[in-house]
Design a protein around this nucleic acid. Structure first.
Length: 231
DNA sequence: ACATTAAGTTTTA
DNA sequence: TAAAACTTAATGT
């Protein structure tokens, strides 16, 4: 009875239902394609990008650089997400930087082109509204995740990344997360030291294998269990 | 229960 | 071999 009331966490945009922008995808797939190496900056904080990007494949992070020079994780985007909405639709400078977490394939159109499409097809506006709602859902998830312990949070981030990668690797292939512990710390909003501790605990329990610049999840079911237990 | 600091080891380029 | 990545321990809030 109580279970009926418990809603699922809203998804990060990373793993959200990705058929939302179907109409936009049809448009973007005919446009200029961009292949970027990991770490590339796509749209920079404080600037007014006049382009709209569609992620065909890859992970993009949105990061806020604060006055002390720290990189603060805001959100993670995956395949079939559109960005940046802020400069294109609110006409204001970006509050953060969009950059490639791993190798990315993007499609690009100009803001003017996007507006032209929007004027001729109101379904495209509805799609963007759905995408915008999904962004809000992702932010709600982050607030909700902050209520749990830090260990659970790191484990949950690993689960989210695992779910993304599962869709791109053949069944039974090793689940490799090619991110450094510094990356995982930033995404989990904690320190490298804490990530090291969580990973070595997971390693001792046979859930992950650690390596330099990445890790392999060997028991995702067990990872899910610990990540979402007792919160 | 976490962050911070510091000082070590291991890996990569 | 220097820099980057990772580990561990001590200490602080």
């Amino acid at each position: 009875m109580e279970e009926d009331c418990v809603a699922e966490f809203p998804d990060f945009r990373l793993n959200a239902k990705r058929d939302i922008l179907r109409g936009w995808h049809r448009i973007f797939r005919t446009k200029q394609r961009l292949t970027l190496p990991a770490r590339s900056v796509i749209a920079e904080q404080g600037k007014l990008s006049r382009n709209l990007y569609y992620i065909e494949r890859g992970l993009v992070e949105y990061t806020y650089l604060d006055a002390e020079g720290r990189q603060n994780f805001i959100e993670m985007l995956g395949d079939d997400c559109v960005f940046p909405l802020q400069p294109v639709f609110a006409n204001s400078a970006l509050t953060g930087t969009f950059w490639a977490l791993g190798p990315c394939t993007l499609s690009v159109i100009s803001a003017e082109e996007a507006y032209a499409y929007l004027r001729q097809d109101s379904d495209l506006a509805l799609e963007l509204l759905a995408e915008f709602s999904q962004i809000c859902g992702g932010h709600v998830r982050q607030i909700a995740m902050n209520t749990g312990g830090i260990v659970n949070r790191v484990e949950q981030v690993l689960c989210l990344l695992a779910e993304y990668h599962l869709r791109h690797i053949p069944k039974g292939a090793p689940l490799v997360i090619e991110l450094s512990q510094a990356d995982l710390a930033r995404i989990s909003k904690t320190t490298r030291v804490t990530v090291t501790k969580v990973l070595s605990d997971l390693r001792q329990r046979g859930i992950v294998k650690t390596a330099y610049g990445g890790l392999i999840i060997t028991d995702l079911a067990a990872l899910r269990r610990t990540a979402y237990e007792s919160i």
